[in-house]
């Protein structure tokens, strides 16, 4: 797969929808193109992280460690971005991501991703929009969960 094809995929990633094709091409060029076989781990929960991954093809599992072992909390398929929380907020990885099928990714370094946001406010705005959307959804889910717990406590 070549740069131009990567750009086509990047355009479908919601977080990057604000970027022009030229910016996306630059992002793709400055990233590493890598393959993972099924079962390989991209990163582990608790590690420090300074890269994010854009999945170009294949599917990956998002796993969280619990007292009862690893629980799969989500599955992500191409095209999508994973690991962005660590590079945006400087926190340790909040989950483990493991390839469910053979996958191809672009590995984006923190400095380059942040620089892209700095240089192109449209990208930054889009990132804010997507993250705010997620927060709204999470809040809604939390409210629902609390609400469903309330009668149980009675």
């Amino acid at each position: 797969m070549l740069l131009n094809e990567e750009v086509q995929i990047l355009r479908q990633v919601p977080l990057l929808a604000g970027a022009s094709p030229a910016h996306l091409k630059l992002l793709a060029f400055t990233s590493d193109r890598l393959r993972y076989e099924a079962g390989a781990t991209l990163f582990r929960q608790g590690e420090a992280g300074d890269v994010a991954y854009i999945i170009l093809s294949g599917t990956a599992d998002v796993l969280v460690t619990s007292p009862r072992g690893e629980i799969r909390v989500a599955q992500v398929s191409a095209p999508s971005l994973v690991g962005e929380i660590s590079i945006l907020c400087d926190v340790a990885r909040t989950a483990t991501v493991r390839a469910a099928t053979p996958i191809e990714v672009l590995r984006v370094r923190k400095e380059e991703f942040l620089k892209l946001m700095q240089d192109f406010p449209d990208v930054a705005l889009q990132v804010v929009r997507v993250l705010a959307g997620r927060l709204a959804r999470t809040t809604a889910e939390l409210t629902e969960a609390r609400a469903s717990q309330l009668p149980a406590q009675d």
Binding site: K25, L26, F29, T30, E111, E112, K115
Partner: peptide
């Protein structure tokens, strides 16, 4: 030139 032409010469992307 297409990729980097518009970037200032001290842009960190040039390291790549």
């Amino acid at each position: 030139v297409d990729l980097f032409g518009d970037l200032p010469p001290d842009h960190p992307f040039f390291q790549r």
